[in-house]
Amino acid sequence: MKMQKNHLQMLNKNRTDQILSIRQHNDFIAGSFSINSSAAAADLNEFMKKKLKKLAEWVLDNQGIIGHIKASIEYPGSVKMYSITEDEVFIKERLDNCNTVSVAVIAAFVDKEEIRRQLETCLEEVRMLENYSDGSKEQSS
């Protein structure tokens, strides 16, 4: 049972490494991932608003400077974009039926591996949303 769990963790780690990219340009670290998700639109929407705020707080708490922290959820025929540079999340467009979730963080003066860990956590949380949402709920806002 334990071996099976370790194997699953290893598979998940490999999947994460393939999806998540981290690049450095001078003082800036740019981390991003893009993933298909069947989680409910309303759950993804709530998650993104909270998560972007948390990522921004993390950069500022670590004396970094936010370049941008953005996410998008693409749907057939529409796209919703989230962005934060200080403390409020701005949202453009509206939701329909789910397709692709993308998150990108660019920050200066922060640790590259820490950004990777933050995005790994974010990616896992997006995946976990699929486990408890049935993908059929409508967005409330």
């Binding site: 990219s21 740019a30 991003s32 893009s34 953005k70 996410a71 998008s72 796209v79 467009e93 998150v103």
Partner: peptide
């Protein structure tokens, strides 16, 4: 973009 993906691209499309 300095990163590997552009969040803005689907919006600009």
């Amino acid at each position: 973009e300095i990163g590997d993906i552009s969040i803005d691209e689907p919006f600009l499309k």
